[in-house]
Nucleic acid binder design. Sequence first.
DNA 1: GTTCCGCATGAATCGATAG
DNA 2: ACTATCGATTCATGCGGAA
Lengths: 292, 292
Amino acid sequence: MNKTQIYLGDCKEILKQIPANSVDLIFTSPPYADQRKTTYGGISPDRYVEWFLPISKQLFRILKPTGTFVLNIKEKVVQGERSTYVLELIIEMKKQGWLWTEEFIWHKKNCYPGKWPNRFRDAWERLLQFNKNRNFNMYQEAVMVPMGDWTQNRLRNLSETDKIRDTSKTISGFGKNISHWLNRKEAYPTNVLHLATECNNKKHSAAFPECLPEWFIRLFTKEGDVVLDPFMGSGTTCIVAQKMRRGTIGIEILPEYFEIVQNSFKQQHSHLPLTWDIERKTHCDLKIAKIR
Amino acid sequence: MNKTQIYLGDCKEILKQIPANSVDLIFTSPPYADQRKTTYGGISPDRYVEWFLPISKQLFRILKPTGTFVLNIKEKVVQGERSTYVLELIIEMKKQGWLWTEEFIWHKKNCYPGKWPNRFRDAWERLLQFNKNRNFNMYQEAVMVPMGDWTQNRLRNLSETDKIRDTSKTISGFGKNISHWLNRKEAYPTNVLHLATECNNKKHSAAFPECLPEWFIRLFTKEGDVVLDPFMGSGTTCIVAQKMRRGTIGIEILPEYFEIVQNSFKQQHSHLPLTWDIERKTHCDLKIAKIR
DNA sequence: GTTCCGCATGAATCGATAG
DNA sequence: ACTATCGATTCATGCGGAA
């Protein structure tokens, strides 16, 4: 069960073959304007909205009424200014019937370096949550940040001086009450996610780390549900979905990417570990900071 | 010198009396839609843009060509959905001639508590940077933050050979100059700010902590410049500006708020400490984690 | 086994140079 | 004039080999 289907081609066309109301979660990171020039013809910022709207219309048809669409996107700087195509896209998608439920922030802890006279490094991206309906499935408990074992381990390593200094140090607002965290087992996260990008030496670097789709798959689906990524890229979303025992559909226009994912799926992923258990603590830097 | 002027009244009118091109920084947090109903008549979300545009037009006139306008704002949830008035406002302000240079994220580390079935706690707000001109004043060195912990661990003891090899690499045109990093303790920040909602225990809780306007005043003005807040509220921006030896103009429509600020200014603030030295390390969570 | 250190690598952005 | 390409700048992170 938990079928895995990947398609080679333009999602605008292939999406038409997918039945209505059949997908529980769409998680995708479309090519940003003027990125991936060779694939979608390098969509210019001023044509981005009209390019995307036919696709989002299909997505609306395909998504279950209880499902969620999470769009990872960030506008580029053009001539010293932020483009407005993401803002316009939100407004236009609402006209298609989408509810703009929430905007999560992905804080990229290791953002791209650089220095410019008029601008700092860009360290965040948008994760726009859209729904067809006010009543959508949300499994909040699945993404709670556990404070149990991990807290104990951290605290065990604290020296006596650390503990003393922590309790006395109230001016800066840090570490006011470490015992407060001791008794807490789990906490709900906020709409700000702290994750590092994966800029490692792996062969195929993805646009986002595995724990990003994992977090939303956990939050908006249960086992056996179906996750769709119409801009599959190196397949992160689909691979994670399969690992998590969800059905998954992926579409990719570039043959070389498609083949990579295809080969990747020939080796079963299901037995591989998820990053969640390692990464979940990064969702809450504050706690780390306080506990250390 | 460094005049402090506060006005009681509707900023839409009072702003007309302020000369053109006379202000270096506008930092403000306007009343959000449907908030502060008694003051501006409870601006509804769908009328927010038309209410704000005449004001932003005046602000455009008043701001120096090299100046910056920072707008702290966050859309409310209406019927389970994020309102789009902020997005529309950005688009309309661009039509007035504003450049939308950047969007900073204020990550509220200790955000408002609560739990809802379809939504997590809102832990961030927008800080929209607008300019009249691509060439605006920016004093980046004034807001540098401690570097990540990797410097202490990894760069601490560079061997002589490393230094030599790197120098030769630089000469030959390859590689980076590590010695540049050697004595660096600080790095430029990103466009994500990590601040607690309140930095101090003052009586009158403001919409934002002192370190928020302080950061932007530091970044976009120098001593003797003029800072304007057309929605003064409890006066945080103006008080901080005065402490930092900037001239400041504040406008408030509510007499009770105005009087509080007025009384507050009768005691000089200039000698009071700033929070920056305490708070700036919070820009870099890793650093905190290591230090503790 | 741990810990440490070198290295490569980013969904970046600007300004200058080239076609 | 207008677009395309390129070098310079910068910093957090994981991996792999070394101590």
